[in-house]
Design a protein around this nucleic acid. Structure first.
Lengths: 126, 126
DNA sequence: TATAGTTGCTTGTGAAATGCAAGTGACAAT
DNA sequence: ATTGTCACTTGCATTTCACAAGCAACTATA
């Protein structure tokens, strides 16, 4: 009946359902907010931490690690003196945009009062 | 700067961001799988519980309750002798389809091996 | 009538994830 | 020398989750 039951070629955590597997990667309250921030142009740890939802820093560190591990985020050093990294979306990460867009569309219709955030203006660094 | 900071007319849990608010409703590992099952034509508690991901029954009961409370799911009695209910999506719930579709598209591209489930064939009830 | 089975949950318990505050290492600025 | 910033990590209490079992209200079978 279920294709899932006849397939054992791949190793999926819960099932071969595409939705289940997307949820295993980004299905929690915080991950897609980090992706949103990246889409809006944020790059630094501090910037993510400053978003109005107030993500706990241990969760933020964990989510960035996980997103990097699955190839959605790329972490690159931008400063050597104190080693500092910047984060950016890979193609795989940028392709999550339609998912966020469809969420925005739904929210616009059913959650009046919600408002999309403006693109992040990078602070000038001297 | 953030619109969020100037708006206090509505009461949103974390921010006025549409994405954050969608995640507060369906942002976990199980809720959208229940919605998926409803889209595929499942109606009864047992059917959701039988999905290959194996949702724990206490979680299932909780998610159905929450989805009903926020108007995504409608719970109606279909049998009186032993009082039994069936679940179905409201318009608000059916409008989540694009979100699931965009997840399927992403998964099809980046998670090879995933396969969408076929529409549920209702068992004949005598 | 007695026993077993089904459905749709609820309850109990341990494990895991989360939230919050505080701490830390490496530097920069005063 | 002291204070500050950034990018985290650590500890700990609280919440959520997963798993198993139980249970009420029937139905079906012997």
């Amino acid at each position: 009946m279920f294709i899932a039951e006849t397939d054992n070629q791949h190793s999926f955590d819960r099932s071969i359902c595409p939705i289940a597997n997307v949820l295993d990667l980004v299905g929690d309250k915080w991950t897609l907010l980090v992706v949103r921030d990246l889409i809006l142009g944020k790059s630094y740890y501090k910037e993510f931490a400053e978003s109005p939802e107030g993500i706990p820093t241990n969760i933020l560190a964990d989510r960035l690690k996980r997103l990097e591990k699955v190839g959605i985020v790329l972490k690159t050093p931008y400063c050597l003196k104190p080693t500092r990294y910047q984060y950016e979306l890979t193609e795989k990460g940028k392709d999550l945009v339609p998912i966020l867009e469809s969420m925005v569309s739904w929210a616009t219709k059913y959650l009046p009062g919600t408002q999309v955030f403006p693109v992040h203006e990078p602070k000038k660094r001297r």
